[in-house]
Design a protein around this nucleic acid. Structure first.
Lengths: 247, 247
DNA sequence: GCAAAAGTGTTTATGATACACCCATGC
DNA sequence: GCATGGGTGTATCATAAACACTTTTGC
């Protein structure tokens, strides 16, 4: 038992983990798969877990849990995420604290929410997740969520969109070598609107941080696209000189 | 005494309150004041309190304190701010949670930090603050701060600048009726660089949300400037249609 | 040869920047 | 009348937007 002179709230770290579905237009062979790829509309997805225990037993919720007293907030977020879903090594940034007094029926619980992005191309094992009771949901097919997790998720989505306009966060979703088409589909998935291919490519290449490689994608049923990489060092150098990414 | 089955951290809400110095080029008479106003360089300032108690007794710190168990996070921030400084009725938004395990020597303390802006034109009484031990500091004349409050302050300043580029947050510092010169000085104070007067005014008026009034400022020792107001409703309507403020 | 997606340029419109002088007022 | 800040316009440049066809590859 732990005793204090003043009342203390419980504090959790919860994660809103975004991924992309249709995650396998592979840069490595993938024989036998029969993706029609007639449409390349990718979709943002979110990682949820199904709760075992009350409150909200059986309901879906954001992965997360109580922080330990000797642990940093983001370490707690990563630890809980891995324990509950098996997902690790991903982009993670703090989103906001949620602390309405009655948001948990058990006791006062303050949640530090994190926004995370998992690269399902390079961690395909994560796509399934280790956990029986975890799953990916498209944003327009979400189940009802426990606690105020719908509010947290909406906040995370708004932040993802806003952040995406100001920083090249899109590449967190993509493999190290990607096609411009993938970038464009991702932009369209995040912003929810289509863009002109020629203008998009022109602007992207004009930044100078997207480097064309002497390689093309493999095993596609049509002309193979050239691969590119994101030059993060160069981007950060430019940014520190005052350059502003704008998508 | 309060007892729990698992350890709980303490949680505080602390505020980084920004203001503007040289706060009295008045829209109402101010006889007897002898402001040279030879320069109109305004400066961002921050509201700090001097701690009575250990740890860090005597050091300056951000105003704030422990949240109550039945109180919303932002309500706690407002309450503590008013208790400690007398400042109320101000713009307030959540900044981030700070929770390094050893940031407070007493026990594990997680701080939900808030970014606040006080309008010293319309709440001039707040300029002094009710509290003996509170004071405004220019950003380049800060004392050493308690805990990790320097980190929090830096984070707040970065957020203020970034937010200022994306939303018309500047008007939180200004009175309902302001001159374009005031807006420009404020922009320069926040962004730390000078801008061209003609281009600035052109762009500001082109937004359609800055409305010229049939009034001029009073009691200035030179030609009086026209007053304007910010049409917040119109701004919000435009924004909801997809318009993006950009400073 | 056909289906599917890759790749490519020009024109136009819009917004950003650079730049200097006269005006109104208080003293 | 002079000092102080208020107020104004145009030309240039850079970026964004609109727009459609040819090429490559696998089947």
């Amino acid at each position: 038992m732990f005793t204090y002179r003043y009342p203390h709230p419980a504090v959790t770290a919860d994660c809103v983990v975004f991924g992309l579905d249709e995650a396998c237009p592979p840069t490595v062979p993938d024989p036998g798969s029969r993706r029609g790829s007639d449409t390349d509309a990718r979709e943002l997805t979110v990682l949820l877990i199904q709760r075992d225990l009350d409150p909200y037993a059986g309901a879906w919720a954001l992965p997360g849990g109580f922080i330990r007293l000797d642990e940093d907030l983001d370490a707690a977020a990563r630890r809980e995420l891995e324990e509950e879903t098996g997902v690790r090594d991903l982009y993670l940034e703090q989103l906001a604290a949620f602390g309405a007094p009655d948001r948990d029926p058990r006791e006062r619980v303050i949640t530090i929410a994190y926004l995370a992005i998992v690269n399902l191309f390079e961690h395909p094992v994560a796509a399934a997740t280790d956990a029986r009771n975890a799953g990916w949901f498209a944003l327009d097919e979400l189940p009802r969520l426990a606690f105020d997790h719908e509010l947290i998720l909406e906040t995370a989505l708004a932040r993802l969109r806003s952040k995406h306009r100001e920083e090249p966060i899109a590449f967190e979703f993509l493999p190290a070598k990607f096609t411009l088409r993938q970038v464009q589909s991702l932009y369209e998935a995040i912003q929810g609107e289509r863009v002109d291919k020629r203008n998009f490519r022109k602007k992207l290449l004009a930044t100078g941080v997207i480097i064309p490689l002497d390689e093309v994608e493999m095993d596609v049923a049509h002309r193979a696209a050239q691969l590119h990489r994101f030059d993060r060092e160069r981007y950060e150098a430019l940014r520190d000189e005052g350059y502003r990414w704008n998508a």
